[in-house]
Computed example of a mutant assay.
Amino acid sequence: MPDAEWVARVELAACYRLVARAGMDSLIYNHITARVPGSAHHFLINPYGMLYGEITASSLLKVDLEGRVLTQPDARYGINHAGFIIHSAIHAARPDVACVLHTHTRAGIGVACQRPGLLPLTQNALRFLHRVAYHDFEGPAVEPDERTRLVADLGTLDVLVLRSHGLLTCGRSVPEAFLLMHTLEFACRLQMDLLASGAELVPIPPEVQEKTARVLGGPGVARSDNEARLGDWNGRREWEALLRQLDREDPSYRN
């Protein structure tokens, strides 16, 4: 296969391993997909039946936007239909998105069930101020016509809270999608812990909320000429550190 596809496979396999290590996996369910470089219609997805900690670069399936499996290393494992519905919709509608990451974590579902959604309680949450979309629950995502509504709700944003369902992030790269999800998940865990504590919470003034969102908001967020920006949020610096850790402990994802 082309070198660029193999690089994408290694990155995506690493992402599966890192999501598992962060406690954001859910048995054999959920999905992370990556667009195949050089192709607008093909993407990589996990084999339905493998744990995230088992996935390797060569085990990933290549599929097209119609759900046809183009590369299937192990005939025992196909694709999960619900995962295909969600991910194919975004890859088809958003050519700027290279990676889509979807989770069903306890904290993520908890926030998704709360009417206000993600609250501006912490610095982590303010990274996403005005930058989170919401999609109402329609049952398991198995109906093709839901794709139109899901894409419309997401719009041009990179974070989608699926009501009563879970979280989803989009990235221009695998590292960016992972960093967004890692930050979002931590914000959700903090919110659930804070609300469960019953303690009186210290509100963040609106002007400080807006300033924090500008400083942490990454590319595309308007800010004054003299206003600082922390990081570029492409995830590459964090990603390289995480890969060094993976390679020290278990480099089998590269196989």
Rank of each mutant, 00 (worst) to 15 (best):
F84Y: 10
H102M: 08
L44T: 06
A107D: 06
R76E: 14
P47Q: 00
G49T: 07
E54F: 07
T71V: 15
A34N: 13
A34L: 11
R76I: 00
G49Y: 10
G108I: 01
L51M: 14
A98D: 11
A40I: 02
E66I: 00
G108A: 08
E66F: 01
V100Y: 03
R68S: 14
M50L: 15
H41A: 11
R94W: 12
G110I: 09
G83E: 04
G78W: 01
P47M: 01
A89S: 15
H102K: 10
A40R: 12
Y52D: 08
G53Y: 08
Q72H: 14
Y48V: 09
T56K: 12
H41Q: 13
A82S: 15
E66N: 11
G67C: 01
C99K: 02
E54G: 05
P73Q: 13
L65E: 09
K62F: 00
G110F: 07
A75I: 02
E54H: 13
S59N: 10
A82C: 13
G108D: 09
P73V: 14
V63A: 10
L61E: 05
H104F: 05
G108C: 08
E54W: 06
L61V: 03
H102E: 07
P73C: 12
G83Q: 09
D96V: 09
D74Y: 07
F84H: 14
A92L: 07
A89M: 08
S39R: 15
Q72M: 15
S59L: 08
D96S: 12
H81S: 01
